[in-house]
Computed example of a mutant assay.
Amino acid sequence: MLAMTLRYSLLTMLFPTFVSATELRVLVLNGDSMPWAKLENHQLTAGLYFDLGHALAGQMGLQARFILLPRKRLVHALERGDADILCNYLPVWLPGAFDWSTSFIPNAELLISDKQAGKPASLNAFANVRIGTVLGYVYSELDQALGATFVRDDAPSMRNNLLKLAAGRVQHLVINQFELEYQQRQGRLTTPLHPYMVLRSFKGQCAVSRSGKITVKALNQAIAALQSHQVLQRIMGQYR
Rank of each mutant, 00 (worst) to 15 (best):
Q221G: 10
P192L: 07
K203A: 15
T215D: 02
N161K: 02
V216P: 04
L180M: 11
H194A: 08
Y182V: 02
L193F: 04
R185P: 05
Q186G: 06
T190I: 07
F178M: 10
I175Y: 02
S201Q: 13
Q221A: 15
Q205A: 14
G204D: 07
L162K: 05
P195R: 14
L189M: 03
L193G: 05
A218P: 09
L219M: 15
Q227I: 02
N161A: 03
L193R: 10
Q177G: 05
V174K: 09
L165K: 02
E181W: 07
G204E: 06
Q171H: 14
A224S: 07
N220M: 12
L173V: 04
K213R: 15
T191G: 01
S209R: 13
T215L: 09
Q186F: 04
F202L: 09
G168Y: 03
L163M: 06
N161F: 06
E179M: 06
R188F: 04
K164P: 03
K164I: 01
L193C: 03
I223W: 09
I214M: 12
P192W: 12
V208L: 11
K217N: 06
F202E: 02
T190C: 11
Q183L: 02
R200G: 04
T191R: 05
K217I: 13
A207F: 09
L165N: 06
S211F: 14
I175G: 01
Q205M: 14
L226T: 13
L162D: 01
N220C: 07
F202G: 03
L165Y: 01
Q205D: 09
I223L: 09
I214H: 05
L180G: 02
V198I: 15
K213M: 13
R185M: 12
K164F: 11
E181A: 12
L199A: 12
L165V: 01
L219P: 07
A224H: 09
V208K: 07
R185V: 08
S211P: 03
A166G: 04
F202A: 03
Q177A: 09
A207Q: 07
V170W: 03
N220D: 15
P195W: 06
N220F: 08
V174R: 05
A207N: 03
V198Q: 00
Y196F: 11
G187C: 05
I175W: 01
T215S: 15
K203D: 13
A167L: 13
Q171V: 00
T190Q: 14
R169H: 11
Q177H: 08
L162I: 09
P192T: 10
F178D: 04
A218L: 10
A222W: 10
V216T: 08
T190H: 06
Y182N: 00
G204A: 14
N220E: 13
L219W: 13
Q184E: 10
G168W: 08
A224T: 12
L173F: 12
I175E: 00
S209F: 08
L193D: 05
C206E: 12
I223G: 13
P192I: 08
L193M: 02
Q171T: 10
V216S: 05
A218F: 04
R210Q: 14
R169F: 10
H172W: 08
H172V: 00
S209N: 05
Q184I: 03
L173Q: 07
F178E: 01
F178G: 10
E179L: 01
F178T: 10
L219T: 11
K213F: 06
E179C: 07
N220L: 09
E181R: 14
